[in-house]
Design a protein around this nucleic acid. Structure first.
Lengths: 219, 219
DNA sequence: AATATATTTTAGACTTGTCTAAATTTATTT
DNA sequence: AAATAAATTTAGACAAGTCTAAAATATATT
């Protein structure tokens, strides 16, 4: 088993390699982890001994496939717990992160499988971030704001940028919800407003301001 | 904040003082915590410095009111999580303990308040153990098997001894459930079987064997 | 290519929680 | 009440994770 600290380092390395490239510097990890470079070096050695990363002195580190699997399982747990807190326990978006940081380290395959089932197997968290499956497989396509897509694109709504109550109420009333299939019927050249069809049912208009705050992937 | 280890020691001291008396020996704690007496001494000093216990060298320790409050909050969390796992995530009774041991250390007042609400504010866990409230107040009356009560007693069903599927199915079919009000209409002298009324509705007969496996308190 | 600067690692120390072995205190027995 | 046994504490050590300060390496600059 890995300690909480080891798990947090692996998660940090994963998210850093997402943004930049596959090798991460000691300093970058130190900043992310709110710790000192010397502490990071110690941990990189340890993770390397455990074959969780590939590490060469002075050259930074990258997750091994074993380490990547662990990182993805932590991220899976984090995102599922966030969904659970939001959907089942009426947490607000800004309250979920700290608690999920703790819950992500609970070690029970059955627990996370049941939470997944309880939530009806969500594929994205409400920020549009993909939730890795139990095998660590993760949707590669990144969610982008709906304003980025073009006429006739068929999308899957994966999240929202703005988590304010007023915005959430607005999309609710419009009939928009996570998991909806959305087809872009038309893009107004003048103000970039959109005409979209939700599922097979109603067609609505949304402003560019709203479109910017809705996240989706190509279906 | 207290570490997981400190919380576990406080919980151990609490449960030990429940059984025996108010002062607990170093050895008793060592056995409960699966550790050595020397380690316990170190921790007793630390908990004493933090005013969580009253401790005199060679004289054992007892929880201070501050320590008792912490212990009760851990126990509250443990029992609420057990209920959650059983009732919402389809865990079996023998699967809940290990996971609850981890979850009880998650630190979030809102989380536990919402779990409590989600479960509709249960007062007893399914073993008949009382769940302390948010202020650390705990029902003092201990659950006893229904076979211990007498004619005309009005009871609150708080738990079951046997958690096998067959027994749980049986009480389900009989219309018995946690939280039911039960009135003992008659006790058969010969075989100690009971005639009981559940709520204001149906009256049923249960054998002494069944009664022994149902836990209740005087309402 | 030599020097200056930035990054990373090492060395040694500290904290938390654990341990073994020895010393001390308390309890029990005769 | 002295001797023995049992329980508890102390002393010193270890592992995990952190830190500061100094040394080593890599990168950038002229």
């Amino acid at each position: 088993m890995n300690s909480f600290t080891e798990e947090n380092y692996l998660k940090a390395i994963y998210t850093l390699t997402e943004q930049s490239n596959s090798v991460v510097s000691t300093n970058a990890i130190a900043e992310k982890m709110n710790t000192k470079a010397a502490s990071v070096t110690d941990m990189l050695k340890k993770l390397s001994d455990k074959k969780l990363i590939n590490y060469q002195k002075y050259q930074g580190g990258a997750l091994s496939s074993k380490g990547k699997k662990v990182a993805l399982s932590i991220i899976r747990k984090h995102r599922l717990w966030e969904m659970f807190l939001l959907e089942k326990l009426d947490f607000k978006w800004d309250e979920v992160h700290d608690v999920a940081e703790q819950l992500e380290h609970i070690n029970s395959d059955k627990l996370i499988a049941q939470i997944d089932k309880f939530l009806n197997y969500p594929k994205f968290d409400p920020h549009g971030e993909p939730i890795p499956d139990a095998n660590g497989k993760i949707q590669q396509q990144r969610s982008k704001s709906m304003a980025n897509y073009k006429k006739n694109d068929v999308l899957l709504m994966t999240g929202v940028v703005d988590h304010s109550t007023s915005f959430l109420n607005y999309i609710d009333k419009s009939g928009l919800a996570l998991g909806n299939e959305i087809r872009i019927k038309d893009v107004n050249e003048f103000d970039r407003s959109l005409q979209i069809t939700i599922g097979k049912k109603n067609t609505i208009f949304i402003s560019n301001d709203v479109a910017k705050n809705i996240l989706a992937i190509i279906k």
